[in-house]
Structure formats: structure tokens, C-alpha cells
């Protein structure tokens, strides 16, 4: 693997880990495997009778209390993958195992947070969080108590009687996280959960998520297309490539924990980001759409220049 592809501006290899970080990863890998993906393939039939391979031969596993990010260009099958993991779609071949047992069909032990919030608009915030507990047969009083604890955790206890349409995007997503966590899932699947939020709210939510993850016994699989988000959050980043979706590399993020936003200028962060950029936007390879060669005609007066 050519780690020096970006030239000599930085000497740090993204794979180089400080002893503390290396020790963390050793401990992480000693923890039991929660989610195991084996030869996962998903082929979709096309309208013309052909086939499109969205994912091909995916293999990876996630350890208990790990926070793994899945990163890839658009069309790499990120969403297909998370739907397969959640049981909302069935693989063409291969399997998903949770705690060593095959996971088929949707189940509350694989909680999911969607990009589009998907709160139930007819339920109050508290009742949204209670939903999974009630479906599992818990008594209303007890479910209500638990829901309030989870709302406390995401800082929304005040809004327990509000309806989703009264909340901002960030608040809605916090409710959705509380709702998924209330079921005590073995793994929390998050499909670009902060993608629809503005930059500032997004940064707050990332910090918030790390806070929750530190305090709650939960394993998180987080899909994103944002490189900085992936590095800031993840223990390991699974990089996919598109057409068909395949594992390109599993990167161990060498940025030490606890993470904070100031680390985005640290050498480890920059080295990892450079590597991700190489993988996601390969330089030499001519991409399918040569952006530089757009045939733009000049439509302003001569001398009316902006740069």
C-alpha cells in the first residue's frame, strides 16, 4: 500500500499509533464481537431485466462498545448495507450475525436512527420514546418512567409533552436516538443521522453522541459521507468503494480519545483525513464525470470579473 502517495508534506503515517492508542485498540479487539458480517452480497434486479450489484462480498465485524463509521462515495451501497443490517432488506447471499446468532428481519436489538427522523407525528416526545417499550409489552407506567430517563439523557425532559413538529431538527434526532436506545439494542445503527442538520447543530450532535456512547452500554455503527465526522467519531472506519460496493479498507483511527473538536488540526487527524481523501476521491484515476472540462460559456461582460 502506498502510504506516501500524498507526497512528503507530512511524515506521519495514518497507521502510526501512539502506545496509548495502540493499547486501546488491543483492548477493543479483545472485546467480544457483537455484529459479524459474512460475505454479504445484495443484487438488485433492474427495470430492463439486468442486475445491479449494490454490495459484493462484504466481511467485517464490530466489537462490543465499538463506534464504527462506514464511509464511502455516493452509490457505494451504504444505505443498502445498513438496511440489510437492520433486517429491513434481505441479502442475496451471505449473512449478518448478532452475538453469534443469525439476525433475520427487523428486531429491537438492532436499533436504528434514520436521516429523516421518522418520529411518529401523532405521539408526544415521551410517547415516541415509550413506543418500543410498549411494543415489547412493558406496562405504561414503567415505560413512561424509563422514557423520561432517556429523555433526560438527551436533555429533552422539558419537551416530553411536545409533538415532533414543534421540535427543531437536532432535537428531533435526539428524540430518535433516545427512542432507539430505550429498547437497549445490542447495536445502534445510524444512517447519516446528522446529514440534514446545519453545520453548527451537527457539530453539537457529534459531541453529544460521543457523550452518550461513553455513558451507555451500546455499540454504534454510524454511516456518513462526511470525512471529518467519521474521523471525529470513529474507532475504526470502514471505507467502501462504489460500483459494486466493496470494502476498500478498514482504517483504525489513530486520533487519541477522548476526542474534541480542536483535534481536527492534529497530525493524526490530518494524516487519516488525507488517507480517506485518497480512497474516496482518487487523484490519478479519471472519474466518470470530469468536472474541470465543463463546457461553460462566458455569460458576463468583459472586465466584469469576480476573481
Amino acid at each position: 500500500m502506498s502510504a506516501n502517495a500524498t507526497g512528503s508534506s507530512s511524515s506521519l503515517d495514518y497507521r502510526q499509533q501512539s502506545p496509548a492508542v495502540a493499547e486501546r485498540f488491543k483492548k477493543l479487539k479483545d472485546r467480544p464481537v457483537v455484529l459479524e458480517v459474512r460475505d454479504l452480497t445484495r443484487v438488485f434486479p433492474t427495470a430492463k431485466g439486468g442486475e445491479v450489484t449494490a454490495l459484493r462480498g462484504l466481511n467485517f465485524h464490530v466489537h462490543r462498545r465499538e463506534l464504527m463509521c462506514i464511509l464511502g462515495p455516493s452509490g457505494c451501497g451504504k444505505s443498502t448495507l445498513i438496511r440489510l443490517l437492520a433486517g429491513l432488506d434481505e441479502p442475496s447471499s451471505g449473512e449478518v450475525r448478532l452475538d453469534g446468532k443469525p439476525a433475520v428481519g427487523p428486531s429491537p436489538d438492532r436499533g436504528m436512527v434514520f436521516q429523516g427522523y421518522t418520529l411518529f407525528p401523532w405521539l408526544t416526545v415521551k410517547r415516541n420514546v415509550m413506543f418500543g417499550l410498549r411494543m415489547g409489552g412493558m406496562e405504561s407506567d414503567e415505560a413512561s418512567r424509563e422514557a423520561l430517563q432517556w429523555l433526560d439523557l438527551v436533555g429533552l425532559a422539558k419537551f416530553k409533552d411536545a409533538y415532533p413538529h414543534q421540535l427543531s431538527g437536532g432535537m428531533k434526532q435526539r428524540v430518535a436516538i433516545a427512542r432507539a436506545l430505550a429498547n437497549n439494542p445490542r447495536i445502534l445503527l445510524m444512517d447519516e443521522p446528522f446529514g440534514a442538520l446545519d453545520a453548527q447543530t451537527r457539530a453539537q450532535m457529534q459531541t453529544h453522541l460521543l457523550e452518550i456512547w461513553r455513558n451507555v452500554d451500546v455499540t454504534i455503527l454510524f454511516i456518513t459521507h462526511d470525512l471529518d465526522e467519521a474521523i471525529y467519531l470513529a474507532d475504526r472506519i470502514l471505507v467502501l468503494k462504489a460500483h459494486p460496493g466493496e470494502v476498500q479498507e478498514l482504517i483504525e483511527v489513530s486520533v487519541p480519545r477522548p476526542r474534541h473538536p480542536a483535534q481536527s488540526n492534529s497530525p493524526e487527524f490530518l494524516a487519516t483525513k488525507r488517507r480517506l481523501e485518497e480512497l474516496i476521491h482518487p487523484r490519478a484515476e479519471p472519474t466518470s464525470q470530469p468536472m474541470e472540462k465543463l463546457p461553460i460559456i462566458r455569460l458576463t461582460h468583459a472586465g466584469d470579473d469576480v476573481e
Binding site: 427487523p106 434514520f114 418500543g132 411494543m135
Partner: peptide, 16 residues
């Protein structure tokens, strides 16, 4: 359908 899928991941079954 997104709400139905969300409910499924929260453990809701057919009649529920």
C-alpha cells in the same frame, strides 16, 4: 413507509 420501517426496528409486529 419510513415510519413503518422505524416501527419495525423498534420491535412492532404485524398487528401492532
Amino acid at each position: 413507509t419510513a415510519l413503518i420501517e422505524a416501527a419495525q426496528t423498534l420491535g412492532a409486529r404485524r398487528r401492532q
